[in-house]
Computed example of a mutant assay.
Amino acid sequence: MIATRRKRIRPAALASLLALTLSGCGLSAELDRERNPAREPTPAATRTRAAQPSAPAVSETSPALPAGPKASPAVPVQQDRGCPLSGLRVGTGPVDAAMGLRAMTITLTNCGKKPYELKGYPSVRVLGPQGDPIPGVRTVEGTDQVAMAPEDPGPEALTLGPGESARAGLYWRMAAEDGTYLRVAPAAGRSTTTVRLPDPLDIGPENILGTTAWAPAT
């Protein structure tokens, strides 16, 4: 009688085990439920979840991220507020582009209290992202050496009263390297002002920057 009962129970046990296997739980999952019927997280599982941040982060074993662009150097540039000690403020316009020719306007404003005498061409140097002059870039008076640049009207004597401005044009041909700053003087030998450009000059090394003479700004 006992042997018969055992034979009847074994098929039922096999059927239960098969049902657990097909349901995806498996024997190990069933044993886990028996050991932890409340399904409380184990300490190891708690540590694993705590180690997963809500947003991507770099751990000590993560590969190094590629370095970002270098911070701009401490180039002394013209401040936006107030009037410089020279009494002159330098501004730049956007870069215009057409068929490889680039053009930009620079403006000189008398923000002081005395008239300022002006004649001739601006003195300009193009600086790279680190504040160093781009090698080989030559600034010339006039536009004859820049292909397709408009004709320079030539110099005239100006007197800028307080609040008045003059402008000059810069022309160059497109190249691979960008200029980030301009170091500008009203004329050679006068005090300079360094301005950061809103639009870089893609002038590149061994290139020519042509300038027009100062003219009244309308």
Rank of each mutant, 00 (worst) to 15 (best):
residue 149 A to M: 06
residue 104 M to Q: 13
residue 155 P to K: 00
residue 104 M to S: 08
residue 32 D to A: 11
residue 60 E to N: 09
residue 102 R to Q: 15
residue 39 R to G: 12
residue 121 Y to P: 01
residue 70 K to L: 15
residue 154 G to W: 02
residue 154 G to P: 02
residue 128 G to Q: 09
residue 137 V to G: 04
residue 48 T to E: 11
residue 119 K to R: 10
residue 158 L to D: 06
residue 80 D to P: 00
residue 115 P to M: 10
residue 160 L to K: 03
residue 122 P to T: 02
residue 50 A to P: 05
residue 159 T to A: 08
residue 84 P to Q: 02
residue 142 G to V: 04
residue 30 E to N: 02
residue 127 L to F: 10
residue 101 L to Q: 08
residue 67 A to D: 11
residue 139 T to V: 04
residue 59 S to I: 05
residue 33 R to D: 04
residue 77 V to H: 04
residue 52 Q to R: 10
residue 131 G to Y: 03
residue 70 K to D: 15
residue 111 C to L: 03
residue 116 Y to E: 07
residue 118 L to C: 09
residue 140 V to P: 00
residue 53 P to G: 08
residue 142 G to M: 06
residue 72 S to E: 07
residue 63 P to L: 09
residue 90 V to S: 00
residue 80 D to W: 00
residue 146 V to Y: 09
residue 116 Y to R: 07
residue 80 D to G: 15
residue 46 T to P: 01
residue 45 A to V: 07
residue 58 V to C: 15
residue 121 Y to I: 00
residue 52 Q to N: 04
residue 136 G to V: 07
residue 125 R to D: 15
residue 49 R to V: 13
residue 59 S to W: 10
residue 66 P to T: 14
residue 159 T to G: 03
residue 124 V to I: 12
residue 40 E to D: 07
residue 56 P to L: 06
residue 109 T to R: 04
residue 72 S to H: 02
residue 110 N to W: 06
residue 38 A to C: 05
residue 31 L to T: 11
residue 103 A to Y: 14
residue 147 A to E: 06
residue 99 M to I: 14
residue 101 L to H: 10
residue 99 M to K: 09
residue 141 E to F: 03
residue 56 P to V: 10
residue 100 G to Q: 06
residue 88 L to V: 02
residue 107 T to N: 00
residue 81 R to G: 07
residue 116 Y to P: 05
residue 45 A to D: 14
residue 146 V to E: 06
residue 77 V to A: 14
residue 131 G to V: 01
residue 40 E to A: 12
residue 99 M to L: 13
residue 157 A to H: 13
residue 84 P to R: 01
residue 132 D to K: 09
residue 129 P to F: 02
residue 73 P to Q: 09
residue 89 R to G: 00
residue 95 V to H: 02
residue 55 A to I: 13
residue 72 S to T: 05
residue 160 L to M: 05
residue 66 P to C: 12
residue 123 S to P: 00
residue 50 A to Q: 11
residue 66 P to Y: 12
residue 139 T to A: 10
residue 30 E to A: 13
residue 58 V to Q: 15
residue 159 T to P: 03
residue 38 A to S: 05
residue 90 V to A: 01
residue 28 S to P: 07
residue 104 M to N: 04
residue 141 E to H: 07
residue 137 V to R: 03
residue 156 E to V: 03
residue 91 G to H: 00
residue 136 G to M: 04
residue 111 C to Y: 01
residue 55 A to V: 15
residue 85 L to G: 15
residue 74 A to R: 04
residue 100 G to D: 10
residue 105 T to V: 08
residue 115 P to S: 13
residue 121 Y to K: 01
residue 29 A to V: 02
residue 48 T to C: 07
residue 114 K to P: 01
residue 83 C to M: 07
residue 128 G to S: 13
residue 90 V to K: 01
residue 134 I to L: 13
residue 130 Q to C: 01
residue 90 V to I: 12
residue 79 Q to T: 12
residue 73 P to G: 15
residue 124 V to N: 02
residue 43 P to F: 14
residue 151 E to C: 05
residue 123 S to N: 05
residue 79 Q to Y: 02
